[in-house]
Write a protein that binds this DNA or RNA. Sequence first.
DNA 1: TCCTATGTTGTATG
DNA 2: ACATACAACATAGG
Length: 265
Amino acid sequence: MPELAEVELSRRRWDVALNALVRAVRCAKPTARVLRDVQLDAVREALTGAALTHSEARGKQLAFRFGADRWLGVHLGMTGELRVEAPDHEPARYDHLVIETGAVALVFRDPRGFGRVRFEVGGDEPAWWSSLAPSVVGPAFTLAAVQGFLTRHARAPLKAVLLRQERFPGIGNWMADEILWRAALHPARPAGALDDAEVALLRRTVRRVARDSVTAIADDWSYPPSWLFAHRWGDGNPCPRCRTTLRRAPIGGRTTCWCPRCQTG
DNA sequence: TCCTATGTTGTATG
DNA sequence: ACATACAACATAGG
């Protein structure tokens, strides 16, 4: 279920084990899809006795470093979550990875199995980490970059374009709706139809929502009532800004929620 | 039973 | 070649 802010929260959760030594690495039954090319034996070999030294989130991607050069990559997919359990935690169904330390066990659980674990040993950043798109809150997320991307995907609806991780890493279904709602742009609007002022507004709003979501998110992954997020799933809920009944329909292949009164641009 | 779900990717189509 | 649309993946819950 995670987007940028939920991923960051997940990272911090596992950080309780910073500097702790790994005692064992386990997993529940088959888990083939999530681990893919990763050899559990190799992970076990490389991590046992090593300490968690660093963690970082980039968009929806996570990297945990053990020792100086052991890289564990995690993508939470649709239903993945990082949990902290008792050190003797017995791997349950959907626990694809359990990293036991003296004080806690770090657990990656993912029922639908759309998530992914990567692993690599090496001094430099692995390619799957270093080749990720630049952050939407960083200096590379320029007006020209956004404008160029919208032009390239001129006929696609804004909603679909905002979901593209190669330019908007960390933006997911609810965050795209939140951004378009705040920018008062209709989600079905073709990306190439925005004028200069609207492109600038969209870029500003992406950055604003990306920043604000990290501080506004609660431990249970909820958001304040002033956010569209808090109202988007129920039927017939009012727009938090104008009280007009929100609409919901598939746009760009995903369920989209918007305010028919506010989002006319 | 049918529909939905905060994601990504492979494939078909234009 | 490029952009766009959509099914498929696997599971739970309403």
